[in-house]
Design a protein around this nucleic acid. Structure first.
Length: 260
DNA sequence: ATGACCACATCTTGTGGA
């Protein structure tokens, strides 16, 4: 099963790009982030026409996540558990059954957290703490689990063009790294790093300052695998060339294969 | 040339993104 994650930065602005990529890459599952629309505004028909089932957790203007799947989507959870007051649509989870064995998939849009310090950074760290707590629950199921999404975390200095320029940023701060390591150390495998050791491979290039042309990027979109999924990991790649298309998102898709 | 983006809202400018 091929599973992908892509922060599309508005599904309405990006629909042609997303359809073109789906036709070329043919993932079985696509987790999308920053769809920037309510559920009713999501172009589900366009994806159903391509053979996908659709689950959406939308929000007006900001955030919003979705999952497309060639297989039916069951046991759907909308919103990250742990805070009933949290209105932001940043988490959607579902179970797919490609061949009799369940694969649980989550589409994650982790808060950016800038500026630091401030309430946005406090929210980021609190959100990460909730994700850690929920991930513990999910790992206890001992099924294949893929936490896919835009983590807004640059894991190491090798994952950014100019580490010095990012010192103190919410994506690269020590507290951010500590939370991210706590999550990974629950037993997850970073699918990309399990397959590609080459440094300076990125999933995001800013629209500004010619970042794409200069390859000034950051690696912040990640596929975290439970042990059961990691045991079945095949290829993992970043489809960087998507960034060179007309009207691109500032993020590109990352995908991996999970064998049956 | 030391700058340069993009998407959304009900808008001609501010906010948010990373």
């Amino acid at each position: 099963m091929k599973i992908a994650s892509w922060n599309v930065n508005s599904i309405k602005a990006r629909l042609p790009n997303v359809i073109e990529w789906l036709n070329a890459a043919a993932p079985d599952v696509l987790c999308m982030q920053e769809i920037k629309t309510v559920d009713e505004g999501f172009p589900a028909d366009a994806f159903e026409d391509l053979g996908y089932n659709v689950a959406v957790h939308g929000q007006k203007t900001y955030n919003g996540v979705a999952i497309l799947s060639k297989y039916p989507l069951d046991d759907i959870t909308s919103g990250l558990p742990g805070d009933d007051e949290d209105e932001q649509a940043r988490y959607l989870e579902a179970v797919v059954m490609p061949d009799g064995a369940p694969v649980r998939v989550a589409s994650i849009y982790l808060p950016n957290g800038n500026p630091v310090p401030g309430p946005k950074y406090d929210y980021k760290l609190a959100w990460m703490a909730r994700l850690i707590a929920h991930a513990k629950t999910l790992l206890a199921y001992e099924d294949s689990l893929v936490l896919a999404g835009d983590y807004n975390v640059i894991p190491t200095p090798e994952d950014v063009h100019d580490p010095k320029a990012w010192e103190g940023d919410a994506l690269f701060r020590p507290e951010t790294h500590a939370h991210y390591r706590t999550l990974v150390n629950l037993g997850f495998t970073d699918a990309f790093r399990a397959r590609v050791t080459q440094p300076h491979r990125y999933t995001f290039w800013d629209y500004q300052r010619g970042a794409w042309q200069k390859d000034h990027g950051i690696r912040i979109d990640h596929l975290l695998l439970s042990p059961q999924a990691a045991d079945r990991l095949g290829d993992c790649e970043i489809d960087s060339q998507v960034r060179a298309k007309p009207k691109p998102s500032d993020h590109v898709p990352i995908w991996c294969e999970i064998a049956s």
